[in-house]
Design a binder for these strands. Structure first.
Ligand SMILES: [Mn+2]
Ligand SMILES: [Mn+2]
Ligand SMILES: [Zn+2]
Ligand SMILES: [Zn+2]
Lengths: 125, 125
DNA sequence: ATTGAGACTGAGACACAATCTCAATATAGC
DNA sequence: GCTATATTGAGATTGTGTCTCAGTCTCAAT
């Protein structure tokens, strides 16, 4: 069984920050925005809370190779990301693709997947 | 124009290690295997050389979220990976999927992509 | 074969993200 | 309010990767 969870101003602030955002954020960006809601929040608390929210499936991490992980609210549902190689913006993608299970040999069970597209965004192309 | 490149025992050892392997390796695994070929090779040289080989398109990095980047020879060609959530092995996948370009809005140019599947491998399921 | 410019090396210092420690604090059930 | 304990924040610590720099190695020119 999991440990007892308590409601804290810090955790609520982080959830509020992420729910108002439309792109994934870095931990220090989350800390900076949360500080506008709560008087103080340490970076260790940000990392701890993000891990808890991930365990509770309230937050997802978005990892672009070569860059630090970013975090976004999981109420956006399943989606993927486009990374601009020039301006390094990260965009949400709407759809998903079919046939991913066909990539795998028999005997392997696919539970999750992630897709990241790289290229040039509308502004940079 | 790019910088002049020289042939060194260390770089050749790393290339040899990666070409004989059938899965992506961590930097310290690469160092350990390279030490069987050359009398000494520092970890800084491993990182430096991997970066050079990536720039020269001889090596690709494989990044599983939450884990340190691994490296593999790019002579395996374009492919993707399956990550077992139990034993954390990483398997090469043969095929790719169609229709990735349809995921992006018009005006965006897709240059590259990566796909990682997560689940249970044949041995763990 | 010798030379020399400069690419390369390895050890250790350094930088950074992320985790751990622990005393102080806040929460929730009573 | 009181208590048990989950949570916090500052600082120490870890882990991964980069930087520095004096010494070495490579290779084209001689
Ligand atoms: Mn997103
Ligand atoms: Mn591979
Ligand atoms: Zn862009
Ligand atoms: Zn497995």
């Amino acid at each position: 069984m999991s440990i007892e969870r308590r409601t804290t101003k810090q955790k609520e602030a982080i959830k509020a920050v992420l729910s108002h955002q439309d792109g994934p954020l870095l931990p220090d960006e989350i800390q900076a925005l949360a500080l506008k809601i709560v008087p103080s929040i340490g970076i260790a608390t940000v990392y701890r809370t993000l891990k808890i929210l991930q365990d509770d499936n309230l937050v997802c991490s978005v990892e672009i190779p070569g860059q630090a992980p970013r975090y976004e609210s999981s109420d956006r549902g399943h989606h993927h990301h486009f990374h601009c190689q020039k301006c390094h913006s990260v965009f949400d993608l709407e759809k998903c693709v079919e046939g991913l299970k066909n990539l795998v040999p028999s005997g392997f069970r696919v539970i999750d997947h992630e897709i990241t597209l790289h290229g040039l965004c509308k502004a940079c192309d």
